[in-house]
């Protein structure tokens, strides 16, 4: 264990935490890498307990990009051996049900493949645990309950209280993951075990294509006379400008600004 992760631990009691990790994909080069959101989940898991979290992956144990997670200061990665096209949910749920876990963390959406973000919900449903989506931090754990902060739009946060054990997905707004070190990544061990995963029947007849650029929506002026539509189409979008205050004392100008800020609701 790294000394930083020991010093950053929050709870004194040992929590059993698991992080579900996947193989990511660089958005431009398409190279395989550690998935950003999953790495944040591992980072959050490392900060929660003095005990090292367990890492779980469903897929091929021979994938070298998984070692990037071990380079974050972990000794061990558990791989449930399965093919590309299997349904990971039943295998994960049965494996997690056997372990006595308190918290299961994962990213919001996978970086390659379907990336639907339904996996944490399906796993939580099979385990019968509550699911909290898009958390950024775990504030406290006491008395069988955890208080977590959830990410909202525009940088806002919401506090939630949830009973242990639970499943949570970690928002991209959470603490960024630490750098992966090459040495520990090579020294860590990847344990693979077979699992009874079945091919994903629902996805059998879907087709995968490279993403097509989506058409942009155009603002089309409707109604009115032809002259009005012509004017709406050819008019300059900006240029009319807003209110300009040149006269008056500095105090009046400051009052005008403050009144606008209050009217917009950003100053209370």
């Amino acid at each position: 264990m790294l000394p930083e992760s020991r010093s950053k631990t929050m709870a004194s009691q040992a929590m059993k935490i698991a992080a579900l990790v996947s193989v990511g994909q660089h958005p431009l080069s398409r190279r395989e890498r550690r998935a950003d959101q999953d790495a944040r989940a591992v980072e959050l898991a490392l900060s929660l307990s003095p005990e090292l979290p367990s890492l779980i992956h469903v897929g091929s144990a021979r994938n070298e990009s998984l070692r990037a997670y071990l380079g974050m200061g972990l000794n061990n990665l558990k791989v449930l051996n399965a093919d590309q096209d299997v349904d990971a949910v039943p295998a994960l749920a049965s494996y997690l049900g056997e372990q006595a876990l308190d918290i299961v963390l994962t990213g919001v959406r996978a970086e390659c493949g379907e990336g639907s973000g339904l996996l944490p919900y399906a796993v939580a449903d099979q385990l019968g645990w509550p699911i909290v989506p898009r958390i950024v931090s775990v504030v406290s754990i006491a008395g069988g309950y955890a208080e977590v902060w959830q990410a909202l739009p525009r940088g806002q946060r919401r506090a939630l209280r949830v009973p242990l054990p639970f499943v949570a997905s970690v928002d991209p707004a959470a603490e960024p993951a630490r750098q992966s070190a090459f040495g520990p990544a090579q020294r860590g061990s990847i344990d693979s075990r077979p699992c009874a995963a079945e091919p994903d029947q629902a996805r059998a007849n879907w087709q995968q294509h490279p993403a097509k650029p989506r058409p942009k929506r155009l603002a089309v002026a409707k109604g009115g006379t032809a002259a009005e539509r012509m004017k709406a189409a050819t008019a300059k979008p900006q240029g009319q400008g807003g209110q300009v205050i040149t006269e008056g004392t500095d105090r009046e100008k400051a009052e005008a600004i403050l009144a606008r800020l209050v009217a917009e609701g950003v100053v209370r």
């Binding site: 390659c112 493949g113 379907e114 639907s116 087709q207 995968q208 294509h209 490279p210």
Partner: peptide, 12 residues
């Protein structure tokens, strides 16, 4: 549907 990282389309 858009797949992960906005890189693929899934026809279903």
């Amino acid at each position: 549907c858009r797949g992960g990282s906005q890189l693929t389309d899934w026809h279903r």
